[in-house]
Nucleic acid binder design. Structure first.
Lengths: 166, 166
DNA sequence: GACCGATAGTAGGACGTCCAACTAAATTTC
DNA sequence: GAAATTTAGTTGGACGTCCTACTATCGGTC
């Protein structure tokens, strides 16, 4: 989440904080930009979802379950797909369940495993929320399709160099 | 913060979650990549700072104060420079003060204002922490200098289109 | 000089994320 | 087949972020 108002030039932040003091200025500018853009995106999506009583994290979980074959997944798998710590999954499922959007059901054969199943209310909520998310252009309208692809490619290089895509 | 292990291909996440269901696939791939890279960077910096008893947020605050002219700033200004909600500044300063790295002092003329001043211990901590942060290459070694600049430029376009750089 | 809106900061609460430690169950090892 | 190891999930605590609501103070207006 980011403050609603941004009463200054964020570029000044990078200069003030990093300048030539820490690391390569070029690198730090990129780091700061990524941090900032992520904030912007997160904020935009959360704002769109708030009227629907969802956060981005919970929306992602709902979408994940919706598009799963059986409408249910083990919590462990949810954590893998959403790149979340097991405790974060517990937290999110707790809240979704409290809202009646999903429910926990025991795994038929593995008693360690808990399946999370999307409810009918959850399906309806996802539909409404998706309309809101679709209406957000994610502030990426500043880029052409080719530039968007270029951005993704550059970020993919970073991820690869960081051992992502394990 | 991000889980230490990432036992799957994050690209699959974008496909699973978004596919052609929400928005333009190209755009969503970029969004997902930004979210992910931010996670990676945040995680790398936090890991480097943990041995020094700092988080990235607190480190930023410390650096900001260190490079200020008088070694002190009003909390309001800190919030502007760091793009943080006033309550987040309160939180961070609380913790830094508890560690003896900064201290609150009253503003000489405006009694509403609280100045936050870096202590000697704070200066020493910043130095040690900066060495740790400098050693992190932020996973951007996957890019050449030119590519890093290209990345920053693309992100700047996004920020501009989103009304950043107010 | 007395209001009254704007400003600085804090308190309390929600949320998402992590880690460490724990329980329960399955799997592997011997 | 019993013991050790691994795996699934939860609990409790820390942290950072936000929002709403509040107090204290400043400044401008009348």
């Amino acid at each position: 989440m980011v403050p609603e108002s941004l009463p200054f030039d964020p570029i000044a932040r990078a200069a003030t904080l990093w300048g030539e003091h820490v690391g390569t200025p070029t690198v730090m500018a990129a780091v700061t930009s990524i941090m900032r853009v992520q904030q912007i995106l997160q904020s935009a999506v959360d704002a769109a979802l708030r009227p629907h009583g969802l956060t981005f994290a919970r929306y992602e979980a709902l979408v994940l379950l919706y598009f799963s074959k059986r409408g249910s997944l083990p919590m462990r798998v949810m954590g893998q797909r959403l790149q979340l710590h097991p405790t974060s999954v517990t937290n999110i499922v707790d809240r979704l369940e409290a809202d009646g959007l999903v429910k926990r059901i025991p795994h038929p054969t593995d008693r360690r495993t808990t399946l999370v199943e999307i409810t009918e209310a959850g399906r309806e909520r996802r539909l409404a929320a998706t309309e809101a998310v679709t209406a957000v252009d994610f502030g990426l309208r500043g880029l052409t399709d080719r530039q968007t692809e270029a951005l993704t490619d550059l970020l993919a290089k970073v991820r690869r160099a960081s051992g992502d895509f394990a």
